[in-house]
């Protein structure tokens, strides 16, 4: 049995000390080879101790630290080479600036890639979807602020989701597909208290019934290809109880 190279072992090793599940041969080998297992444990203690060292570092409140321009310039790779090197040397030794760099990278990842794919949805949000109005409960627009969820690495599909409570129901919405003209919304409806179980969701546009679908056993349903329009919806709980809802999708340039 040929042993793993150190590089192989290290590459499969996450910063939290776990082995990448995507590398089954590493798992397999380590399970059977005491030498590699011992090596792995050594790397793990290095990681654990290093994490502790970085954690215990104290931020100095007053020190020369790289300002917002330089952090942003570094992320954009827009600094002159000598400045970049200076910044890098500083950041490598400064927990505070390293934290700023790490955060900004994460935020850019969170806000950046979505700018393209979500244009339509977000425009919708600004004016309209911001409001899934429930006339019966005096629902106010701000309360259903859509929540962006992190998309998986490399997953360019926009993920946009929010929740709203109506009576004793909880509605979870998420945009599952967005293109220039349409948005498809996945809806999940759960009951919070009572044993009433919603059965059907119907959708009208300009007074015309355009969709009426049974909810799945777990209360799920996808509203396909909604346009930038105002829809009236109704959740049928039973013969006697219907909950009205307005789904208002408006493009803001059309205002």
């Amino acid at each position: 049995m040929k042993c793993l190279s150190k590089e192989e072992l290290i590459l499969a090793l996450g910063s939290d000390g776990t082995l990448d599940p995507g590398e089954p041969h590493v798992h397999e080998h380590v399970a059977h080879c005491a030498a590699c297992r011992a090596l792995l444990e050594e790397y793990r203690s290095v990681l654990a101790l290093t994490a502790r060292i970085f954690d215990e570092e104290v931020f100095e409140e007053t020190h020369y630290w790289v300002d917002d321009n330089l952090i942003a310039g570094y992320i954009d790779n827009n600094l002159d080479e000598d400045v970049r090197e200076q910044v890098e040397r500083h950041i490598a030794g400064c927990p505070r600036c390293a934290n700023q760099l790490s955060e900004l990278a994460e935020y850019m990842k969170a806000v950046g890639p979505r700018e393209q794919g979500l244009t339509f949805a977000l425009k919708i949000m600004r004016n309209g979807l911001s409001m899934l109005r429930h006339p019966a409960s005096g629902f106010h627009s701000g309360e259903a602020a859509p929540v962006l969820l992190g998309a998986e690495d490399g997953d360019t599909r926009p993920v946009l989701a929010w929740s709203q409570d109506i009576d004793d129901l909880r509605l979870d919405f998420s945009a599952v597909h967005v293109d220039d003209e349409h948005v498809s919304l996945a809806v999940n409806i759960y009951k919070l208290v009572s044993d009433r179980m919603p059965t059907r969701l119907s959708l009208w546009e300009n007074g015309e019934l355009v969709q009426s679908e049974c909810l799945s056993d777990c209360g799920g349903l996808v509203l396909q290809n909604l346009r930038a329009a105002s829809y009236r919806a109704e959740i049928e709980v039973n013969e006697h109880t219907r909950i009205p809802l307005v789904i208002d999708l408006a493009r803001d340039e059309e205002s």
Binding site: N69, A72, G73, I75, D76, N78
Partner: peptide
Amino acid sequence: RAWRGESRFTTYLVQVTKN
């Protein structure tokens, strides 16, 4: 106004807004 143009304005804006 403290933006010095060493980055895109949007990156700078995210950094400032984040903090």
